Measured scan of single mutants.
Amino acid sequence: KYLVLALYDYQEKSPREVTMKKGDILTLLNSTNKDWWKVEVNGRQGFVPAAYVKYL
């Protein structure tokens, strides 16, 4: 498993997404889509914009 760092705040806009705050450390679950990565944060799984996170 990889960890990624939230570069920006992101507010979920659909039930498939998750909210994150700048500085959050997220567990990367799937990065096959170049635009949306599946992550786990605070016990929830969902998608965030790939451009908003970077590998640690």
Rank of each mutant, 00 (worst) to 15 (best):
Y55R: 14
V48K: 00
K13R: 14
K38M: 15
L5W: 08
V48G: 00
G46F: 04
L29E: 03
Q11E: 14
L7I: 11
Y55G: 09
Y2M: 12
K21R: 14
L29G: 02
A51M: 11
E12Y: 04
S31F: 11
L28H: 02
Y10T: 01
K34M: 10
L26Q: 01
V41I: 15
Q11W: 11
T32K: 14
V48S: 00
G43P: 01
Q11V: 14
G43E: 08
T19P: 07
E12V: 06
L5K: 09
E12C: 09
V53P: 00
K54P: 01
L26K: 00
S14P: 05
L26P: 01
L28K: 01
L29N: 02
D24K: 03
Y52V: 05
S31Y: 09
G43A: 05
Y52T: 08
V53E: 00
N30R: 06
Q45D: 07
K22A: 12
E17L: 05
I25F: 06
P15Q: 10
V39Q: 00
Y52F: 14
L5C: 09
F47S: 04
V18D: 00
M20R: 00
Q45M: 10
N42A: 10
L28C: 08
A51T: 13
K38I: 14
L3E: 08
S14E: 10
N33R: 10
N42W: 06
S14M: 07
L56T: 09
R16L: 15
Y8C: 11
V18F: 13
L28G: 01
M20E: 00
Q45R: 12
T32L: 10
D35C: 11
P49I: 03
W36G: 01
V18T: 07
I25M: 08
L56P: 06
A50E: 03
P49N: 02
L29V: 13
L29Q: 04
A50I: 04
E40I: 07
Y52I: 07
M20N: 01
S31G: 11
E40C: 09
Q45T: 14
Q45H: 09
G46I: 03
K1Y: 13
K1E: 11
V18I: 15
N30F: 06
T27A: 11
P15W: 08
K22Q: 12
K1L: 12
K22F: 06
V4C: 10
I25W: 05
V39E: 00
N42V: 05
R16S: 15
G46Y: 02
K54W: 08
T32D: 14
T27H: 11
D9S: 08
Y55N: 09
G46M: 04
K54S: 12
E12N: 07
R16K: 14
A50V: 06
V4Q: 01
V18W: 05
P15A: 12
V41L: 15
K54Q: 14
K22H: 07
K54G: 11
K22L: 05
V53G: 01
V39K: 01
A6S: 06
Q11H: 13
V41M: 14
R16P: 08
A51C: 10
F47N: 04
K54D: 08
G46E: 01
K21P: 00
E40Q: 09
W36M: 07
V53K: 00
Y10V: 01
K34F: 08
Y10A: 00
G43S: 07
V4K: 01
A51D: 12
T32N: 14
D24A: 07
K21Y: 11
T32V: 12
D9Y: 04
